[in-house]
Design a protein around this nucleic acid. Structure first.
Length: 208
DNA sequence: TCACAGATGGAA
DNA sequence: TCCATCTGTGAA
């Protein structure tokens, strides 16, 4: 379903560190219906999170922190919950993650799709696509629309540039679809784990 | 050194 | 459905 956010704008509240420093799968579910904001000066580019995936650390073959492999790229993943982890994929795109749990648990939630909210006309310029549906219906699309790249890696999500807001949208559990994650066929058994979550019937989902 | 990646857009 | 894109990253 398309989310109606008109009544919720004034009561937005930045999510605190304690939100992120919990079980990653729970955070992935609860991020649905929250608002991801990139604040650039006075300008806000934002969208409501409608699709996420949980990446659950050292035991998860699909996770960059698998086997506790710690490199320069994955450094953010090993920070405490409440940091951003932005990485480049296929040499041309970026993906945004919210780091979860505590220090040295390399776990995060990948944000895969947004329902565009604030700054839509600017997002259209950033993306050069015709339809609004194409703006943020994929992990790399939403980064391009919101101007998120490597410069937004390892930022505190309780800071003033990049954060997620609770806008008092209640998402009922019967409106959440749970599926295996996308594009990780190489991950063995982990490829089947039900760690992808999206809002049933929302038009901005990346893939059914 | 070198194969390949949490993807996308456009052609067929 | 297939295919080019394009380069950082990580293992060798």
């Amino acid at each position: 379903m398309l989310l109606d956010v008109t009544a919720t704008r004034k009561t937005a509240k930045k999510l605190p560190l304690s939100f992120y420093q919990r079980d990653t799968t729970l955070v992935a579910r609860e991020l649905l219906g929250k608002r991801l904001v990139h604040q650039i000066g006075r300008k806000r580019l934002s969208g409501i999170i409608v699709e996420t995936e949980a990446y659950i650390g050292a035991e998860d073959r699909a996770c960059h922190g698998f086997g506790n492999r710690r490199t320069r790229r994955t450094e953010s993943l090993f920070q405490e919950g409440g940091y951003s982890y932005v990485y480049m994929i296929y040499g041309m795109h970026f993906c945004f993650n919210a780091v979860t749990r505590t220090c040295d648990h390399p776990e995060a939630v990948l944000v895969r799709a947004l329902q565009p909210n604030e700054g839509v006309s600017e997002m259209k310029r950033n993306r050069l696509v015709k339809s609004e549906r194409e703006l943020t219906s994929g992990p790399a699309k939403l980064c391009e629309a919101l101007l998120i790249d490597k410069a937004q890696d390892r930022l505190s999500l309780v800071g003033s540039e990049l954060f997620i807001e609770d806008i008092n949208l209640q998402i009922s559990s019967q409106d959440i679809v749970t599926k295996p994650r996308i594009g990780i066929a190489y991950a063995g058994e982990a490829a089947h784990w039900p760690l992808r979550f999206y809002i049933c019937g929302n038009p901005f989902i990346s893939k059914i």
